[in-house]
């Protein structure tokens, strides 16, 4: 299905591919095929309701994958995002339960995420630790901090536990509300994806991220401060993971430090890689990431709709990740020789 890409293209077509990323075409086709198959297998798949559900279900993963695109494109990796998601969501929940207002509560959570991201960045650059190790350590430390902070008890954001009812209403609206039928989580995802796309494709920061990931040396020769760019990418990731965690606790007004966001980092990285971002750095687009996120979301949804057993679902999700990335890599190879 991607063979057609390898054909000599006319100049106009080639130009379009290079502008809108021939890289994403393979993933987009894979997603399209999946959707067609699911629509045939189950007539509920294409209902507005279900599509909005899928949109909402992938939103938090998607928000984090936008951040992960920056980190991976800069040539690093962040394994601590699931823990940041849990920690910052729970912290915000606790601050709200303690009776504070919406804005300070959100700020505390998001700032905590940014600070953790900066620590990740400092360890991975000036600290000279491989980010795989630095963030693996932070994965454990941040989850540990969440357990210590909550004493392992679930945090439930409700009026009975002390939340101001007005604040509670605003807070739960962020997670549960909808604008014109579109769930708030999806609204946030779309906004963040747009901003992320703009940042990566259209700003000098995005340029620097890709340059640093492509070649550290060449970036340095161009006068780019490799360390600052990487730290900024980690900080962005931390902030987005925190925001996703906050939306999570606003949606289901309860979280538990041992459980919330457990293993989420792998889903986030998988979605980003499926979307064509290179683990080696230097390559990545937000459009690709969104497609990758949708592939995973549509698959989860579709497998349940069609009644596939839970154990077979695990198998199929893994299979699709491998196949999607393999198609991508094979088509690149074809294009690069």
């Amino acid at each position: 299905m991607t063979g057609s890409l390898a054909q000599p293209a006319t100049k106009a077509v080639k130009k379009r591919f290079s502008r809108f990323g021939g890289r994403e075409t393979g993933v987009a086709l894979a997603l399209l095929v999946m959707c067609i198959v699911l629509a045939i297998l189950n007539d509920r798949f294409l209902t507005t309701n279900n599509l909005l559900n899928i949109g909402r279900q992938v939103s938090l993963l998607g928000i984090m994958a936008v951040g992960m695109t920056f980190v991976l494109a800069s040539g690093e990796v962040d394994l601590s995002v699931g823990s940041i998601y849990a920690f910052c969501g729970l912290v915000t929940g606790m601050v709200i339960v303690a009776g504070y207002g919406l804005f300070p509560s959100l700020m505390v959570g998001i700032l905590a995420g940014i600070v953790i991201g900066i620590i990740n960045g400092l360890l991975s650059t000036y600290g000279r630790l491989p980010s795989l190790i630095a963030t693996l350590g932070m994965l454990s430390m941040v989850r540990g901090a969440a357990l210590i902070l909550t004493d392992g008890r679930p945090v439930t954001v409700n009026a009975r536990n002390g939340a101001n009812p007005d604040v509670l209403g605003q807070f739960t609206f962020l997670g549960q509300g909808a604008i014109a039928g579109v769930p708030m989580q999806l609204v946030f995802f779309v906004l963040i994806a747009l901003a992320g796309w703009f940042l990566l494709a259209r700003t000098s920061f995005g340029f620097r991220v890709l340059a640093v990931g492509g070649s550290t040396k060449a970036a340095r020769v161009s006068g780019i401060s490799v360390e600052k760019v990487k730290i900024a990418a980690f900080a962005l990731m931390g902030g987005l993971a925190a925001f996703a965690g906050i939306l999570s606790i606003a949606f289901l007004p309860s979280g538990q430090a041992g459980r919330t966001g457990l293993g989420l980092e792998l889903d986030v990285i998988a979605a980003t890689i499926v979307g064509g971002t290179s683990l080696a750095g230097g390559e990545g687009t937000i459009i690709g990431t969104i497609l990758g996120v949708l592939i995973i979301g549509v698959l989860r949804n579709g497998l349940v709709l069609t009644g596939v057993s839970p154990f077979a679902q695990e198998f199929l999700i893994g299979l699709v990740i491998v196949v999607a990335v393999a198609i991508d890599r094979w088509t690149i190879r074809e294009r690069r020789v």
């Binding site: 979280g255 919330t260 293993g263």
Partner: peptide
Amino acid sequence: TDPQEMYAAIENA
């Protein structure tokens, strides 16, 4: 185990 995952799984089912 993640609360979001749980809700989504129930919703899909």
